[in-house]
Design a protein around this nucleic acid. Structure first.
Lengths: 189, 189
DNA sequence: CGAAAATTTGACATGACTCAACTGGAGTGG
DNA sequence: CCACTCCAGTTGAGTCATGTCAAATTTTCG
């Protein structure tokens, strides 16, 4: 787990073994069973989670009471409810494990401490936040410019096995179309 | 202009006068006439721009040759094409002044130098990137969950005078609806 | 095996788009 | 300062992608 973290960190900024150890000591390993929640609506999201293994979905309940999936999180991704975390407001999102999932979690307080001890980390988080920003912008663009059919095709092309890991109604929710319509898209292919 | 920057910076992290001066020396003031471009498609976006005065739009040309406005940028905002800036790839976006606009620009190279001299800045940019992330997520959500009509209403409610500063067809583009449809929305109110 | 959950199917509804024509106001040049 | 042009905005007819609802079917899993 420490090695996996080290590899990940070095993608962005070079860290020595001691530096990784230092950071690692601020992290708390946790595991969640399939269907368990990392975060629920109404909770304050105090942590960032680095997923070492498994799969989560980040979703909310919309005005009509339906689940809307905003993102998925997989191995080697940080996940959190950024809005709740930054603004320290109750979460409107749920984060739920879709498979048995292992994470390294760190609270805002501890992350601040780690930043003080190891300023490089601040740099690293600046960089990964920028990358997340680009990722979310790309997603936006995909949703603004392309039809439901195209979005589905794009997902299948990029991550062919994803449809095997996740039930279809969740894919529909993520693509922002109804399960019925996704079913139709798949039929006419 | 320096004072304005100082006020802005202090929203996030406390800076002394000398520190602001230090940063300021890395910044280049520039002005753009209405309709001038800060960035064009195909350019490499080397800079971040802090808008001290004026208004810009960030847009692209879509598959059908139509302009699609992704964001507007106003006073006291940083604007850039994050994707081009980070990945150092040619820009697919245009950034254009809609009013006479003054900015403080900083190149990636200079920003890196400034980070080295003044690590606090790295922290500041980590924080503003997180804030931008939240802003873009909120926009996403608005577009995913609400109809064109609701998006228009939301815009009018939040920034009543915006419609006065920007022609209607640009508002339509930003709301991701056709000008014709926006016209209809406005009629039936 | 049986119940509950997920997926498919079909009929119908609608939000938003396209295209084309029209209106009105803002510049511009003679 | 008028006439002309051009661009933004409006209107209306027709269309299409996608949604809703309800029922039928299939899959999952205790």
């Amino acid at each position: 787990m420490k090695q996996q973290l080290h590899n990940y960190l070095n993608r962005y900024v070079t860290f020595s073994e001691e530096e990784v150890n230092l950071f690692y000591n601020y992290l708390t390993p946790k595991t969640f069973q399939k269907k368990e929640y990392l975060l629920k609506e109404g909770d304050l999201c105090k942590d960032k989670f680095f997923i070492t293994e498994g799969l989560v979905r980040i979703y909310k309940i919309d005005l009509k009471g339906k689940e809307k999936i905003a993102h998925f999180g997989i191995e080697n991704w940080w996940t959190t409810n950024m809005e709740s975390y930054i603004l320290e407001q109750p979460s409107q999102l749920y984060i739920q494990a879709l498979e048995n999932t292992s994470v390294l979690s760190i609270s805002k307080t501890n992350l601040e401490k780690a930043f003080k001890k190891l300023p490089k980390l601040e740099r690293m988080f600046r960089i990964i936040t920028e990358n997340m920003f680009v990722a979310i912008e790309r997603k936006n663009e995909l949703y603004m410019k392309f039809s439901g059919k195209d979005r589905y095709q794009n997902l299948v092309d990029r991550i062919p096995d994803f449809a095997q890991r996740v039930p279809q109604y969740m894919i529909a929710s993520y693509l922002d179309i109804t399960p019925e319509y996704l079913s139709e898209i798949r039929k006419n292919k």
